[in-house]
Design a protein around this nucleic acid. Sequence first.
DNA 1: GGTTGACCATGACGATCGTCATAGCGACCC
DNA 2: GGGTCGCTATGACGATCGTCATGGTCAACC
Lengths: 196, 196
Amino acid sequence: MNVIIAGMGTDSRERMVRSAAYLFRERGYSGTGFRDVIAHSGAPRGSIYHHFPGGKVQLAEDAVRYAGDFLDAGIRAAVEGGDAASAVDAFAGWWRGVLVKSGFRAGCPVVAVTVESHDDAPQLVKASADAFGRWQDTLATGLENAGASPERAARLATLIVSSVEGATILCRAERCLRPLDAVVAELKEITRTAVD
Amino acid sequence: MNVIIAGMGTDSRERMVRSAAYLFRERGYSGTGFRDVIAHSGAPRGSIYHHFPGGKVQLAEDAVRYAGDFLDAGIRAAVEGGDAASAVDAFAGWWRGVLVKSGFRAGCPVVAVTVESHDDAPQLVKASADAFGRWQDTLATGLENAGASPERAARLATLIVSSVEGATILCRAERCLRPLDAVVAELKEITRTAVD
DNA sequence: GGTTGACCATGACGATCGTCATAGCGACCC
DNA sequence: GGGTCGCTATGACGATCGTCATGGTCAACC
């Protein structure tokens, strides 16, 4: 039987969400069909609209939320027990692993959903904004604790998220880690001077 | 009749390429069908595979190249007759205009194609890498002329392209210019200290 | 132990996807 | 003026898309 924990659904439901997030990273939102999610997750076809009455949009919404929560927890853990540079390392290091492990074929699922969202699915835009916002808030808190002013910390957090996400895209195009490494080097220099 | 200029195709062919680049910015690659391109460009349906024997992939390839050339020319013009900060303004200012004019619904077509490309279309990855590479080269040249060292100029150019592209995505999600403004403020500060 | 309800198997719906074949148009060349 | 060729109109192909209805299974609860 399935043990239901508050906030978490069935096994197959969660597998679908995780697979959707995984597949979005490589093929994007429109490029990923329900059949792909079923095949990748091994979840049953018949219960799609039982778990996701809102259809594909709801699945994508949950996938974005899942990715947002997952990465935010990683950033938070690295920020709580490290210096300012570890905030950058935690965020960039995760995407470096995604790039290498996928052979530069995968990127950020939140980015994928954002750049494809039309007007008839505003929930997706909101979910993406939530994820990006939480990442920035967590990073900004870490930078403040390291000694940066609140205003500067907020601006730097936005720069970190923007540049690392952008560098991840450039890495996929160039099929190498050079852009991400260059960005991280500059970011570390900036954060170092900002916390003094 | 159609006046054929070297490197440029028919009117309807070029309209299709431009429309594809335009539509990719809002709906992405997989989210944009040939029928959308036909409707938006007013081009005839029957000549799709006359102008693009390679099908949708070739159309996207040309769209990425078109966007790459177009923006590179803008950056080059701004870099040639300005200081180091104008390089940032030229690049970021273009995307600011795209965001505002589209109501935060459009982004970068090169990004859209990159994050959706699978293995069966490596031409698209290469075309994207070319566009990103040219933008970085042009910006780096401008930074070098302003006084930055070649190595630092290359790293900064990568940071500029990455962070502005990333900020554009964040702006679409948050539906405001705050991320881009924050990034531009930090970038100007960095480039100012780098050219001294 | 009968009933409820969460969950899944199966198959199909209409729409749209990228692709292509065929026929025909009109301008140009010899 | 007959023929060639760039370009377009039209319609269809099979595949796949998201969506949903129906019927069934099995554990849980009164």
